[in-house]
Amino acid sequence: MIEAGDEGKSAVKASAGGGIGHRARLRQRLADGGPDALLDHELIEYLLALAIPRRDTKPLAKCLIGQFGTIGGVLTADWDALRAVDGLGETSIAALKTVQAAALRLLKEEATRGPVLASWQALLDYLRADMAHLTVERVRVLHLNARNMLIRDEHMGDGSIDQAAIYTREVIKQAMQLGSASLILVHNHPSGSPQPSKQDIAVTRQIIEAARPLGISVHDHIIIGADGHSSMRAMALI
């Protein structure tokens, strides 16, 4: 495995006239044109160039896009999956994950700065950025107060490639401890399809029935997939 200090040593050095000039042109395009000025692989290429300054990072960037499908797939790939890519060391992986963390914080801030229900599209953008490309199912519960402000974004656990357990008792227990007035359930489908399964619907209805006597409402159950998202409320399933 190529470690941080070895990335530059083992890398193919960019020529002084070619590599440096190319990066300068990328930088200028970004400065002049903003986020849309560079293609996806060029954004990854320039980011990696900051972490591996003596290497031509274009082939590696194209390799990453090819392997993980999209720039979102690259940034959300887990550390071990990135570590398995020939040419990536700890420093370059950290650079990719730092960009992911910054993007998610920006999206979460936009989605939760006011009542969550009033920023629904911003919430969906945040959840899709965080969960659409995960390779295992992840369950989370958004706990809201009486003004629909986010109290806690609770990660309930991860499952296998196609199943994650969500326990009604644990959801209700946490809601009572936090004093939640309402909940939004969220999980992802690694298959890509956001369509709810019969089990998804059954579990959601169990949680609704358990929460109702306590005065806790369930606004929705959102399912995230690479192909989009679904809302059980919008589908009239709850």
Score class of each variant (00 low, 15 high):
Val12Tyr: 13
Val12Cys: 13
Ala14Tyr: 11
Gly19Lys: 08
Arg23Phe: 03
Ala24Trp: 11
Leu26Glu: 00
Asp32Trp: 12
Gly33Met: 09
Leu38Ile: 06
Asp40Ala: 12
His41Met: 07
His41Gln: 09
Glu42Pro: 06
Ile44Ser: 02
Tyr46Gly: 11
Leu48Lys: 00
Leu50His: 05
Leu50Met: 10
Leu50Pro: 03
Ala51Leu: 05
Ile52Met: 03
Arg55Ser: 14
Thr57Ile: 08
Ala61Thr: 00
Cys63Asn: 14
Ile65Arg: 04
Gln67Asp: 09
Gln67Trp: 12
Phe68Gln: 10
Thr70Gly: 05
Thr70Pro: 05
Ile71Ser: 02
Thr76Val: 00
Ala77Thr: 06
Asp78Ala: 06
Asp78Pro: 10
Trp79His: 15
Trp79Glu: 15
Asp80Asn: 12
Ala81Leu: 14
Leu82Phe: 05
Arg83Thr: 15
Val85Asp: 00
Val85Gln: 01
Asp86Trp: 13
Gly89Thr: 15
Glu90Pro: 00
Ser92Pro: 06
Lys97Gln: 09
Thr98Asn: 08
Ala101Tyr: 05
Ala101Glu: 09
Ala102Met: 11
Ala102Gly: 04
Leu104Gln: 04
Arg105Asp: 12
Leu106Gly: 07
Leu107Cys: 01
Glu109Ser: 13
Ala111Met: 05
Thr112Val: 15
Gly114Val: 14
Ala118Asp: 12
Ser119Asp: 10
Tyr126Ala: 02
Ala129Val: 03
Ala129Thr: 07
Ala129Lys: 06
Met131Thr: 01
Ala132Ile: 07
Ala132Gly: 02
Leu134Thr: 08
Glu137Met: 01
Val139Glu: 09
His143Ala: 02
Leu144Trp: 06
Leu144Cys: 01
Asn145Ala: 02
Ala146Asp: 15
Ala146Val: 14
Met149Trp: 11
Leu150Met: 05
